[in-house]
Amino acid sequence: MDKSGKLILVPTPIGNLQDITLRAVTVLKTADLILAEDTRVSVKLLKHLEIEKHMMSHHKFNEHKTLTSIVAQIEMGNTVALISDAGTPAISDPGFLLVRACVEKGLEVECLPGPTALIPALAVSGLPTEKFVFEGFLPQKKGRQTRLKFLAEETRTMLFYESPFRLAKTLGQFCEYFGAERKACVCRELSKMFEEINRGDVKELAEYYTAHPPKGEIVIVVEGKA
C-alpha cells in the first residue's frame, strides 16, 4: 500500500519549552522533513527534545519559491512538519500559502492544537472573551490610519501583536482613535521568566511604556466600543 503524504502544522512553545505537547514531539520525531521559519531558532528546540532531523528553511522571504518542491514531496508520500519560531504556524507566521497549495492539490493537511500567544492574553486580560477579533500586526505605514478608524467602531474585544519598539506609539494611537479611557491589557513575554501582565486604560498604558520601554514579545488586548 502506498504511503500517504501529509502536511502537519506543529505549534511550538512561545517561551516555556515545557509547553510542547507529547503529540508534537512524536510528529517531529517521525516526520520525513521539518520546515522551520528560522532553522537557527528551531535547532535549539530540537536539541532540547533530543531530535535529530533534517530541516529546511521556510519563511516569508522564500515561501513562494519553495512551495512547488515541498508540495511535490508530500505528493510522493512524505510527511512534512511545519513549525514557526514560536506558536502556531500560519497565525501571523508563514504557513498560509503552503496550506492553500496543499488544499488545492487535494493533499491532507493537519494542525495540532498547542501554544499560541493570543488566547492566553485574552483569557487573562479581564476583558470580555465571548466575542473577539484578532488583528495581528497593524500596517506599519500605508493603511494604518484607515484601519484604526475602522476599528474605532469595533464592539468586540480586539487583539493585536506588536513590536516592543512600537508599543508606546501604538497605545498613543489607540488613545487618539479609540479614546483615552478605553480599557486594555498589555501581555509581555507570556510563559517566560519575566512574564508581565499590565492592565489599565490606553492612556495609562501609553504613558507607562513611554517611560519604561519594553522588551520581548507583546500582545495587546483592547475592549471594544461600548
Rank of each mutant, 00 (worst) to 15 (best):
F194H: 15
V202E: 00
L122P: 05
L7T: 03
L28R: 04
Q140H: 14
E153S: 08
L205A: 05
I8L: 08
R199E: 10
G114D: 12
P13E: 04
E189R: 15
A152H: 00
Y208Q: 09
T21W: 02
P11G: 04
L151G: 00
T12E: 06
R144N: 02
I220P: 12
M76Y: 15
I14A: 01
S42E: 06
L205D: 10
Y209W: 15
L171P: 06
V219L: 13
L17A: 03
M193P: 03
T26A: 15
E195M: 07
C175N: 07
E223F: 02
T170P: 10
G95C: 04
L49K: 10
Y208W: 10
R100L: 14
K192I: 10
L49S: 11
S57M: 07
T21D: 11
P214D: 06
E104Y: 13
I70E: 07
E52A: 08
T88C: 11
F137G: 00
I70K: 04
K3H: 13
P13C: 09
C175Y: 01
C111Y: 11
N78C: 11
S191R: 01
I83S: 00
L46A: 05
N198D: 05
E75H: 09
L9E: 01
L167H: 03
L122M: 09
L46V: 06
M76V: 11
C175D: 08
S84H: 03
I119K: 02
E50N: 07
A211R: 14
G143A: 05
L159K: 00
N198H: 12
L171W: 03
K225R: 05
R182N: 13
R156N: 13
V27N: 11
H54M: 07
F174S: 00
R156T: 04
M1R: 15
H64T: 13
K53D: 02
A31W: 00
T170R: 01
K60C: 14
D93I: 07
V133I: 13
P128E: 02
A206F: 02
G216N: 06
V133F: 12
L205N: 01
F150H: 10
T146C: 03
L35C: 08
I14P: 01
P115V: 13
R40C: 02
T68D: 00
V133D: 05
F165P: 06
I83M: 12
T30K: 15
A180T: 14
S125T: 12
V25D: 06
Q18Y: 09
P13Y: 01
L112F: 13
V10T: 00
F194M: 04
R40I: 13
V109H: 05
E153L: 00
F134A: 03
T79D: 08
C102P: 09
S4A: 15
N198C: 12
V41K: 07
L127K: 10
T30Y: 05
M55G: 00
K6Y: 08
M76Q: 12
K44T: 06
P164L: 02
V10R: 01
A211L: 15
I119V: 15
G143C: 10
A86P: 05
V41D: 01
A211I: 14
